[in-house]
Each structure stands twice: as C-alpha cells, then as structure tokens.
C-alpha cells in the first residue's frame, strides 16, 4: 500500500502539473477566439447536460493549426528559434566545456568552492541579471566604454537589440546547465586512463580526443539538451536583449496571448512548440537510459 502511494506521487504530480494543463491548452487551441471572458468559444455548458457536451465537441476544430501554416510568420519564428537555440547551445558548450574541464582538474579541495561559484548567479533574480546585460551591452554601456577607452574600437559597437545579444544572454543564463553535467562526467574520469593512453603512444592532445571526450560524451549530450530545450521557448531574453527583427517563437506566443488576446492561436503555437520539443526530449531520455545501462 505504501509502495503504491510512493509510486503514485510522481504520477499524480505529472497529472496535475503537466497533463491536465496540457489538455486544457489543447482544448483552447481547438476553440475559436471570442470577445468574451475567457476570450474563446465554445464554453462547456453544464446546464444543457448531454446535449451540451455534444454541442461543445461539435464546435472544436483544427482551424488554428491550419492558420499557423498560412502565415509565414509562424514557421519562420519556429525555424529562427531552432537556429538561435542551436547556436546558443553550441556557444554554451564552447564556453562551458573548458570551465568544467578546469574544475575537474582543479585540486580536490577547491572543487566545492568552484561549484558554488557556478551556481552563485542563481541566487539573484534572473530578470535583474538580464537587465544588467542591457547595461553592459548598450551603446554607452560598460563593454563599449571599456573598448573605447582602450582604443580597440573608435565607434561604439551595436550589440544590444541584435541576435548577438540574444546569444550572449542565453549562453550566460544557461551556462550552469552545461557545466554541471559535463563536470560530473569529467570528474568521474579516472586519471590513470589518460596515463594508460599516453603509455600506449598517445600525445596529450590525442589522449583528450580519444579518451576524455568520448568518456564525457554523455555529460555533453545531457548539457546540450538542458540548454537547447529551454532556449527554444525562451521569451524574456529575446524580448529584452533582442531587437525587433529577432524572431523567436516564445515572443510570438507572448504577443498572441497578451497583445492580440488570441488565446486559441497562442495555444496552438504552444502545442506545436511542445511537439517540436518532444523529439529532443525523447532523445534526451534515451541518452540518459543508455548511460544508466552503461554504468549498470
């Protein structure tokens, strides 16, 4: 009995916090917008009984999904989101891997401190940190004044409100999600494996490519998914740091929902986004499972 309850907890959790909201979102995505409160139609009419249910289902249709294909804005936004998420993920990997590597090679007594430093930014509000990037990247900002005063540039660089600022923002924000799994993989790596590789004729560099990298692969894959999946639906960073031409599906969703008050289309956008993300999520799960099997 207690076992059943224990097992039930995560399922109830999933049901309440994921499945039920998702069904509601699907329902809204199949509705039509209306000038009402809530702003969509049909509503479930309890008073009409069986007839009400039949009426309700008769009104549902895929109109909104069809609409998404007619306006090029949507697929462009999806595509642009994928592009931005992929590039940011690669940048995060490029920055995060050396940091994780350095942490794993650092003397044992330093490691908890380094780990703390990586997590430290989470102690301040995410919004404040993104705002402070605006201060750093703007034309009169810290970065430009520094570069100008050093004489490296003569004109201030325009970074804020471009895609570059979005890449910087996403890379900065999600860096810990990359560092932690990669570090976990590298830290487990037995130093004698590298010595064995050298003993068998590898240079330091080839030992890195042939031993370190393959053995940290699972960590790298986990890190990439942990960055890619949330970056895909990112909304705050592109709207604060990106420009008007920065197209991301999270921003589109926000505008449909709050500016247009078109809940059904917004819901359809969200459902499609989730379907797109299901692919990497399933791949991620597979990777985790493969890792468990390899360790078992």
């Amino acid at each position: 009995m207690r076992r059943a309850i224990l097992i039930a907890i995560p399922y109830v959790w999933l049901l309440v916090l994921f499945l039920i909201p998702f069904v509601i979102v699907i329902k809204i995505s199949l509705s039509d917008t209306a000038l009402a409160r809530p702003p969509y139609f049909p509503q479930w009419d309890w008073s009409l009984g069986w007839q009400g249910i039949k009426d309700f289902f008769r009104e549902l249709d895929f109109e909104n999904f069809v609409f998404l294909t007619t306006d090029s804005l949507y697929w462009k936004a999806y595509l642009s989101s994928v592009k931005i998420a992929v590039i940011s993920t690669l940048l995060t990997l490029l920055v995060g891997f050396p940091i994780a590597y350095g942490m794993a090679r650092a003397p044992e007594e330093w490691r908890p401190t380094l780990m703390m430093l990586v997590i430290l930014p989470f102690w301040t509000s995410f919004l404040i940190r993104v705002y402070s990037w605006m201060g750093i990247l703007s034309q009169g900002g810290l970065l430009n004044s520094l570069l100008l005063s050093l004489g490296i540039i003569s004109e201030p660089l325009i970074i804020l409100n471009t895609d570059i600022a979005v890449y910087i923002g996403i890379t900065y924000t999600y860096l810990p999600f990359m560092i932690l799994p990669v570090y976990a993989a590298l830290e487990k790596l037995d130093g004698s494996l590298l010595e064995a590789a050298e003993d068998l004729g590898c240079s330091r560099t080839s030992a890195f490519w042939l031993v370190t990298l393959p053995l940290s692969k699972q960590g790298v894959i986990a890190g990439c998914f942990l960055v890619f999946i949330p970056a895909m639906g990112e909304f705050v960073i592109p709207s604060l740091l990106g420009g008007s031409q920065t197209l991301m599906i999270g921003k589109v969703l926000y505008e449909e929902f709050f500016s247009n008050r078109d809940w059904p289309v917004a819901s359809a956008v969200a459902v499609v986004l989730l379907l797109i993300l299901v692919i990497p999520i399933v791949l991620f799960q597979r990777n985790e499972q493969k890792q468990r099997e390899a360790e078992g």
Partner: peptide
Amino acid sequence: PNQRAVNMMFQSYALFPHLSVWENIAFG
C-alpha cells in the same frame, strides 16, 4: 611516456570503458 619502448599494466587495469576488448588491445 608515449615514446618509450616501455608499457605498463596499471594497478587499476585502466581499461578504456568505452572501447571493446578488441579495441582496447588494438589501441596502442
């Protein structure tokens, strides 16, 4: 070490976990 005509069998064996037995032996 990688240029010495000396090979070592490690106390912990230090086998490469991502490679098969065949590939481990072929590594050098």
